[in-house]
Design a protein around this nucleic acid. Structure first.
Lengths: 222, 222
DNA sequence: ATTAAGATATGAAGGTTTTGATAGTCGAGG
DNA sequence: CCTCGACTATCAAAACCTTCATATCTTAAT
């Protein structure tokens, strides 16, 4: 899961980054509205934490621009004021939730997870595709109750394809979600990993899990 | 180094002025918020010591105004209260650190120096320690212009120690900042990397960069 | 000074990630 | 149907990360 934290107070930003990192997120940060927009359009996030008061472009404008561009990423707004009108304005601008500063970290994490979950898949922590089962809590993958041992990157890639099953996933998209930002794109590393994953599944008799979409990327059939 | 001390208690203000002067700082003082703002916009300071309770304009408002105007000078807040909410509020308003009154003079000076130093390398993107130079933009490390090739983890650890130079850094702290969350703590992986880093520097004739603090961790001398 | 206990340094092996080279496959156009 | 060019799969090596075992060093107590 990849989260973008937009907050101009560097200290608070760093704290948030640490907290999200500690909770298993890959974190990017921006300290002003323009940088936020840049990152939003250059990488795909699963969640955005967005302060309202920002240099260069306010959080509201960031939100508005993102929605105009049909970005559907969940946005959680942070506001220093507690006026209800701000809440209404924020939600009206396309935010999915808002939180008043100072806030409780536990609540921030809880709401973040809710947004991500609501946004997409799995309340169940398990994804099943034919006789393949992915336990996302234990990070264990099985074929008919027999474990397929995957390395971290192998697992991350498989999980991402599984979450998006039915959808064609581009290599670049996989890199965006599995690797740190700024990873060299002109590499065949995704292909190599797909090969590794296929080999391991083939040993369990599964040889048609990931299909190649020539010229685009890969897909797991839904 | 130029410091602005904003404190309405004249006695305390004079004491602070003396202490900072004795430690090589050029000192300006202000006794209310408006004067502070005036000085902030008419001179460039390396540090601001800012009391919260002030006549005419509170420390928070001074801080907020300074940040709005894109002043990036490090601000150390002094607060009479010790409530956590004050800390959060202060950091939220753009302060870089805070200290509860009454405070220890040694600690005030130490934190002041840390803030100035942190600000310095943030501005320049370069950290220099003796003949070792870390270019944090290019992520390149050099000894006397000769590059020392470090792997990602090696670089991350060195950078963390360098940012905190002068401070003893525990192994756990390093793991918290360099590894992903949930990393197994009972591993000697940090020791191993310290060894790798030392070996690479030794090849360039640098053999005393990282010192071992027995029972605690490691340190790069500031 | 000697020794024991604990902490750190080092060596080596195993697994993972990444890269680069080569082989194989697909599909559009002739 | 064939060929060419582009795309994908595969192989192998290198670099990197991590673990574990052993050696060495430090400290404190005797």
């Amino acid at each position: 899961m990849k989260v973008l934290i937009v907050e101009d107070n560097l200290e608070l930003c760093k704290n948030l980054e640490e907290i999200f990192s500690e909770n298993g997120f890959i974190v990017d940060t921006a300290h002003d509205g323009e940088k936020a927009i840049d990152l939003l359009f250059s990488s795909e996030y699963d969640l955005v934490i967005l302060d309202i008061m920002l240099p260069k472009m306010s959080g509201w404008d960031v939100c508005l621009n993102a929605r105009k561009a049909k970005l559907r990423v969940p946005i959680l707004m942070l506001t220093a004021k507690d006026a209800v009108s701000d809440k209404i304005k924020g939600l009206d601008m396309g935010a999915d939730d808002y939180l008043v500063k100072p806030f409780d970290i536990g609540e921030l994490l809880a709401r973040s997870r809710t947004l991500i979950r609501r946004n997409a898949w799995t309340k169940s922590n398990t994804i099943e595709i034919k006789n393949v089962r992915i336990d996302t809590l234990g990070k264990i993958v099985r074929v008919d109750d027999k474990e397929v041992k995957l390395s971290k990157k192998e697992y991350d890639i498989l999980l991402y394809l599984a979450i998006n099953r039915g959808k064609i996933v581009e290599r670049e998209e996989i890199i965006d979600h599995v690797w740190e930002t700024g990873f060299e794109m002109y590499s065949n590393v995704v292909d190599v990993y797909i090969n590794y994953i296929r080999e391991k599944f083939k040993k369990q008799g599964v040889d048609d899990l990931i299909e190649t979409i020539r010229g685009i990327g890969y897909r797991i059939r839904g």
